[in-house]
Design a protein around this nucleic acid. Structure first.
Lengths: 350, 350
DNA sequence: CTGTTAGCGCTTTCAA
DNA sequence: TTGAAAGCGCTAACAG
């Protein structure tokens, strides 16, 4: 007689029936609650093991009205920024007994919505959102917030009275990076990676402009490269490409820049390749500053001067703020934390 | 009179009570099933909107006995390999109407288990596992598999009659990389990044050894650097560091290698930094080969020769295999797909 | 120490 | 076209 393969999961009642007790008793054994005689306990345990019992989390959570799970929505995970963020969030949550589910949205409104929806569908206890802002996604997010799901956003626009906000001071970071170049005597300074969408890189560009203005250096629009297309069409990886192509364009200028500030380190790396291909030297011919201080920044040649942002801290703060929202009874005031950046000077700027 | 803020989500019954119909009618409206008079439909819709109704996914899925959700467990997401994998999986699943939840385990058995548990708890319809193998995690995974959760593993050991397996031919990739160096005339070839844990990099090392053997080049153990510690202690980012330190050690040898094969591109990048710091030239003094062909490999200087593995294809296949397992009635035979690698020759090897 | 009841929010089935 | 009943699998609360 062939053993029948259990196609379906065993339930509490299955075990109860098998052992000859009430489902409640089995529940008590499985959860280590209440009093159960040693004898019964053992019988139940044995049956559970044999029948490969596994608690149905849906039913469990439906009953509990919570899941101890947080959802994180990332635009893409192909950069160390997202990675560090996710790790820090995971660690913070894990220490507090929460699980983390990550969804990727590839910077598309449609996928943003799909991610929000699937997480909320699973009744996550809260949501951390670190995608780029876009109309469709934001509208949906608003609905979610207003149906009382606790939400915290990181480094992206989203104004709502009950959504906390964590970010770095991209404006000041951009300012410091540019001022550093100005201090070194540069006057023709390029910017690579301008985008129309309001986001961290827009702020960095504004910081660049602010520095030029403060030092009375006229803005030359030809020195600012970027894309006019919607950023949502640009896959994560292409930032090196953006840097490479942007730099090519700057190099073809009749009066090329003597220094360049790239929107992020990947962009800077692409730009460096273009500069080398042109037979020019860094920083002698062109100085280079990036943003983020990814681990690879030490390994470019020359090592990259860049603006370090506290990635882990952002994740940690976001997670903590969210947990406070979840675990407090009272609806809180919106909170906003903007963290400082730090200029890390290496060899790409003299 | 202040509007009372709804602390809790509205349910079907809440709306039903509000409109004056049965919960079932509301359900029909919300799901677009069955017949409902236009009048009732509108009233219900209005009430639902007003009360910010959102279907409880737990209850929904509990009833349906499925979630249309797949879990992906990644060791870390800090490398393009994981990233591409995740993207390809997500795209494949999304096209078939499934959501993807990603969990990170940071290469620890404890976190592996936590990730498996939380996903299975949420009743995902299937699981894709791409972590490094470890005892505790594997035992737990076995339990899951035997309680009938469909599982596919990518690029890691896990033998089980009902778990499919996707990987690249790391052995042959390592062989080709090494043979390429031998063909160029190198006889003292180093290997950076050996680990004790059986995994893709062990296979790459074996490919290296196989090539040496085939060309009758004696193995010099001093040319093979790596870590004796458990790999689980090494955070994802430190592979550049591993490469840097490994190379330092090779450079300090009385008879240093003329070529080096690094376990992956990040390791190679760290090694390149060490070589440059020593004032040596690539490839003239030391030739360098990596593994993976990450997007940055084009941007190292010189551009990195490396072994490209089809990352996206692996993800796609894994997702497809899993869906077949989920959607078929009959338990299938274990399937194994090992994909070919391709040597990409750039400037780091003459 | 163990069992019964009720219900989490939803949907399938059958009845009206 | 609508409703009532039952139950997905689990557990809190109460009873015995």
């Amino acid at each position: 007689m062939a053993k029948i393969k259990p196609k379906k999961q065993a339930t509490l009642s299955d075990i109860a029936a098998n052992v000859g007790v009430a489902p409640m008793t089995v529940s008590r054994v499985m959860n280590g609650n209440g009093y159960v005689s040693e004898e019964t306990r053992e019988k139940v345990m044995r049956a559970a093991k044999e029948m490969k019992y596994r608690r149905n989390g849906l039913a469990h959570n439906l009953k509990r009205q919570r899941t101890d799970t947080i959802g994180l929505v990332l635009g893409d995970i192909s950069n160390p920024y997202s990675t560090e963020l996710a790790n820090a969030i995971r660690e913070t949550l894990s220490a507090r007994g929460y699980n983390l589910f990550i969804c990727i949205s590839e910077h598309s409104a449609k996928e943003d919505i799909a991610a929000f929806e699937s997480l909320v569908n699973h009744s996550v206890d809260g949501l951390i959102v670190a995608t780029r802002s876009n109309k469709g996604g934001d509208e949906y997010l608003k609905e979610i917030v207003e149906s009382n799901v606790p939400v915290v956003v990181i480094g992206r626009d989203f104004q709502h009275k009950s959504v906390d906000f964590v970010s770095t001071d991209n404006l000041n970071g951009g300012f410091e990076a540019t001022r550093h170049l100005i201090d070194l005597g540069h006057r023709r300074i390029g910017f690579i990676g301008a985008t129309l969408s309001g986001g961290s890189s827009l702020k960095r560009l504004q910081g660049y402009l602010k520095a030029l203005e403060q030092y009375k250096i006229p803005v030359d629009e030809r020195l600012i490269t970027g894309r006019k297309e919607a950023i949502s069409e640009v896959p994560g990886y292409s930032t090196e490409k953006m840097g490479y192509e942007g730099m090519k364009r700057l190099l073809s200028l009749p009066n090329r820049p003597t220094a360049v500030f790239a929107r992020n380190d990947f962009t800077a790396i692409g730009a460096i390749t273009a500069i080398k291909e042109a037979g020019l030297k860094i920083p002698e011919d062109i100085a280079m500053v990036g943003f983020d201080d990814i681990p690879l920044a030490v390994h470019t040649s020359p090592a990259l001067t860049t603006v370090r942002q506290p990635m882990r801290l952002q994740g940690q703060l976001a997670a903590e703020m969210l947990l406070q929202r979840i675990e407090r009874e009272e609806p809180e005031q919106r909170r906003e934390r903007i963290l400082n950046c730090e200029l890390i000077i290496r060899n790409s700027t003299v």
